[in-house]
């Protein structure tokens, strides 16, 4: 078990395995996202309260979910890298950050586009939007700290430490924002929540979420392979490519 773990964590092995997996995940992502989009835009009935406007959840909720998943994965990988000194784990963490930041940006932008017709304003201090905004800053902080360190090894450990502290903090931030929001909400706005959802509304959403997950895995592996190439640029095994 331990041996196979280390074998998996060896850069050449990962590089080849990821190269083999990328097309599969890519095709799965494409099919699932297309089916989910069709289901969400065409097959799902309009919401009785929000009309066709609710269809934005089919991109908003998967983006929000994946942004949090990306942060968790980034911090987990960084933690593994810090504890067992596995460079590949740091490469995966570094690869996850820009994708996670994109998902966070998408969750904010689509939430804003959803909020405009629902609330009459582009931005409301909704709990999820506020949490996403803080999450965006967490991602940006991680990436800026990486960029500020010239030495890759130092960047790995400094940013990894920040990610681990951040992931302990994320539930506290989430809880405090929810609490803050519930106190100040008053009667002014409808919560940006899932409408009373029925089965024919739900399956496209789940399909989209799995599709976004496969997309994330695809781009993550491409970026992690780039990281490996950069980090291993002096290694012999690259000759066999």
């Amino acid at each position: 078990m331990w041996k196979s773990f280390h074998q998996f964590a060896s850069p050449p092995h990962f590089y080849r395995l990821a190269g083999y997996l990328i097309p599969w995940f890519g095709v799965a992502a494409l099919i699932l996202i297309l089916v989910g989009t069709y289901g969400g835009l065409v097959l799902a009935p309009a919401d009785y309260q929000q009309g066709d406007g609710f269809r934005i959840i089919y991109v908003h909720v998967p983006s929000a979910t994946m942004s949090l998943a990306a942060y968790t994965l980034m911090a987990t990988a960084a933690g593994i890298g810090l504890i067992w000194r596995i460079k590949l784990a740091h490469a995966v963490a570094a690869a996850a950050a820009p994708i996670g930041a994109s998902f966070t940006f998408l969750a904010l932008a689509t939430g804003s586009l959803w909020g405009k017709p629902m609330w009459g304003t582009w931005w409301a201090w909704d709990a999820r939007l506020t949490s996403e905004l803080i999450l965006l800053f967490l991602f940006l902080g991680y990436m800026s700290l990486r960029a500020a360190n010239d030495d890759t090894g130092k960047a790995d450990r400094a940013s990894g430490l920040l990610a681990v502290v951040g992931v302990v903090n994320v539930p506290i931030i989430h809880y405090s924002v929810e609490w803050w929001n519930s106190l100040h909400q008053g009667a002014t706005i409808i919560k940006l929540g899932e409408p009373a959802i029925t089965g024919d509304m739900l399956w496209p959403l789940l399909t989209m979420m799995v599709g976004f997950g496969c997309y994330f895995a695809t781009v993550l592996m491409i970026r992690a392979r780039s990281q490996v190439l950069q980090r291993e640029r002096n290694s012999r095994w690259l000759k066999d490519l």
């Binding site: 803080i134 800053f137 967490l138 902080g141 800026s144 700290l145 903090n169 931030i173 405090s176």
Partner: peptide
């Protein structure tokens, strides 16, 4: 500037409570 970017998001719960 970087220091603020790193610390402020983590400090939001303290501000809220």
């Amino acid at each position: 500037a970087l220091l603020s970017l790193l610390v402020l998001p983590l400090a939001t719960p303290i501000l809220i409570f």
